[in-house]
Amino acid sequence: MRHLEVTLAALLACGGLPGTALAACPGNTQLEINDCAASAYRDADAQLNAVWPAARAAAAASGADGLLLDAQRKWIAFRDAACAAEAAQYGGGSIQPLVHADCLRRLTDRRTADLRALLPQ
């Protein structure tokens, strides 16, 4: 357990994990923290899926629907590959699911903001 505490402290000090990831997931065990991070990602994904129809409609209005759909598919592939690479350095460790889920949440939040920016004001 001490090794985990040192690892978490090092990650926070080096910016490897955002402090909010741990603050938002208070748990007593790594499993509880991992589950909370996975839940935060599911919430972020739900927000992205809620914005998607409006972003796609806005793109369709300008004739860019196909371009946005292609970009979204490529973004999903990028997100999955980037987060797999970020979590790989913790392969086999109990913190790996936390790192992976937090990366998915972070990139999904950014994509949701990008899609919102496409919406008419």
Score class of each variant (00 low, 15 high):
Ala54Met: 00
Ala50Pro: 03
Gly15Thr: 06
Lys74Leu: 10
Phe78Gly: 03
Leu22Asn: 10
Ala85Pro: 04
Ala10Pro: 01
Leu104Ala: 01
Tyr90Thr: 03
Asn34Ala: 15
Leu69Cys: 07
Asp35Gln: 15
Ala21Lys: 08
Trp52Thr: 04
Leu68Ser: 03
Met1Lys: 13
Leu12Phe: 04
Ala21Trp: 09
Leu115Met: 02
Asn49Asp: 06
Asn34Trp: 05
Leu118Gln: 00
Cys25His: 02
Gly92Asp: 04
Tyr41Phe: 15
Leu17Ala: 03
Leu4Phe: 06
Arg105Val: 02
Leu98Gln: 05
Gln121Glu: 14
Ala59Tyr: 03
Asp102Tyr: 06
Arg116Ser: 05
Ile95Ser: 01
Ala57Gly: 00
Ser62Ile: 10
Gly27Arg: 11
Asn28Met: 10
His100Ser: 13
Gln121Phe: 10
Leu22Ile: 11
Gly92Ser: 02
Ala9Thr: 14
Pro53Ser: 01
Leu69Val: 13
Tyr90His: 09
Glu86Ser: 13
Arg110Asn: 11
Gly15Ile: 03
Leu11Phe: 04
Gly63Thr: 08
Arg105Asn: 07
Ala64Phe: 07
Thr112Ser: 12
Ala57Val: 00
Ala37Asn: 05
Gln89Ser: 12
Phe78Asp: 04
Lys74Gln: 15
Leu104Arg: 06
Gln96Lys: 14
Ile33Arg: 10
Asp80Met: 08
Ser94Tyr: 02
Gly92Glu: 03
Ala21Thr: 14
Leu67Met: 11
Gln30Phe: 06
Cys14Phe: 12
Asp80Trp: 08
Leu104Met: 15
Gln89His: 12
Arg79Val: 07
Asn49Phe: 05
Met1Cys: 10
Ala60Arg: 12
Leu67Arg: 13
Ile95Phe: 04
Thr20Asp: 13
Pro18Phe: 12
Ile95Val: 15
Val99Ala: 10
Gln96Thr: 10
Ala13Leu: 13
Asp102Glu: 15
Arg106Val: 04
Trp52Phe: 01
Ile95Gln: 07
Gly15Phe: 11
Thr29His: 09
Leu67Lys: 12
Glu5Gln: 14
Thr20Tyr: 10
Ala88Thr: 07
Leu17Trp: 01
Cys103Ile: 05
Ala82His: 14
Phe78Glu: 03
Ala40Trp: 01
Arg105Trp: 01
Gly93Leu: 10
Ala113His: 10
Ala59Cys: 03
Leu104Gly: 02
Tyr41Arg: 06
Ala44Tyr: 05
Arg79Gly: 02
Ala85Gln: 13
Ala58Gly: 04
Ala46Gly: 11
Asp114Pro: 00
Arg42Leu: 04
Ala59Met: 01
Gln89Ala: 13
Gly27Tyr: 08
His3Trp: 14
Ala55Pro: 05
Met1Leu: 11
Ala13Gln: 14
Ala81Asp: 12
Val6Gln: 15
Ala117Arg: 15
Ala64Arg: 15
Asn49Met: 06
Glu86Ala: 15
Ala84Leu: 12
Gly27Ile: 06
Pro97Glu: 02
Ala50Phe: 06
Leu67Gly: 15
Cys103Thr: 04
Gly66Asp: 14
Asp45Gly: 06
Cys14Glu: 14
Ala81His: 09
Val99Asp: 01
Arg42Gly: 00
Pro120Lys: 00
Cys83His: 05
